[in-house]
Computed example of a mutant assay.
Amino acid sequence: MILSLTLSACVSNPPRPVVQIVKYDLRVNQSSRDEIFSDDVGISLKPIMLEKAVTTESLFASYNYWNPSNPKQNGKIRSILVSLPVFEVQVTNTSGQAVSFQKVAIRLVDDAGNSYQAQLKQDIIDFAGTQLDSMQSRGWAMDRAVALGAARNLKLLDKNYESLPGIIEKRILSFDIGNISNDNAYREMFKNTKYVRAMIYNVPVKFDQAGNVTKVAKFDFLFDVIKK
């Protein structure tokens, strides 16, 4: 009888289901490394996943917006500038020459064969401008200079990057994945992905005394997708 009452209570008042959001991490594969040196140049990659990205202020533009016809309608936006995941890149240049990335090709490839190009700084500035234009078309005013300034100040690794001799410098490497500011799309991307490979081709790593490039190298990083 006691058992029957217990079962009845469970059926009429079922516990609320606990919804657990799956978190993902990128871990360097055992056959790979997160830091690679080739002659006079070293490059390391550290993934910045969703949980760390939200606390990395340099990835965001924070600015005020308001309604010109009703000043009481106002607020502040914190908008991410890049698609996730991004990588923190450290470039070590022990040569006596500046290393130009003008002819460097950078790709992110997953196990399904999808390939994503690295974002250019101008891509990020243009996207931010489009978002601001959309807000303005709906009647809002905003700190446009502040928002675009955050995009321009982002220390990005792209074709316009140049590593100075004897310098160790950190940059952000972002790819045109298309899930910008959409954490559901970010999670969906990793749902069926086993690994991603970040490849940086044609990096000048050796020079002659006249400063001419005598050797280029490929830096290949393999990361396994881990559910946390």
Rank of each mutant, 00 (worst) to 15 (best):
E51G: 02
E51D: 14
K52R: 14
A53C: 12
T56P: 03
E57H: 06
S58D: 14
S58F: 01
F60C: 10
F60M: 10
A61Y: 05
Y63K: 06
W66L: 08
N67F: 01
N67V: 03
N70L: 12
N74C: 13
K76C: 09
I77K: 14
I77N: 13
R78K: 15
R78G: 11
L81C: 10
L81D: 10
L84A: 05
F87I: 10
F87T: 08
E88F: 00
E88K: 15
T92R: 13
N93A: 05
N93F: 03
S95V: 04
S95Q: 06
S95D: 05
G96S: 15
A98V: 06
V99F: 05
F101L: 08
F101Y: 10
F101S: 09
K103A: 07
K103F: 09
V104F: 03
R107N: 10
V109E: 13
D111R: 01
N114S: 08
S115N: 08
A118E: 07
K121G: 10
K121S: 12
Q122L: 06
Q122Y: 02
D123S: 07
I124E: 09
D126M: 05
A128P: 01
G129M: 06
T130L: 05
T130F: 00
Q131Y: 02
M135A: 12
Q136K: 12
S137K: 12
R138Y: 08
G139N: 12
W140R: 05
M142Y: 02
M142F: 03
D143G: 15
R144P: 01
L148M: 12
L148H: 02
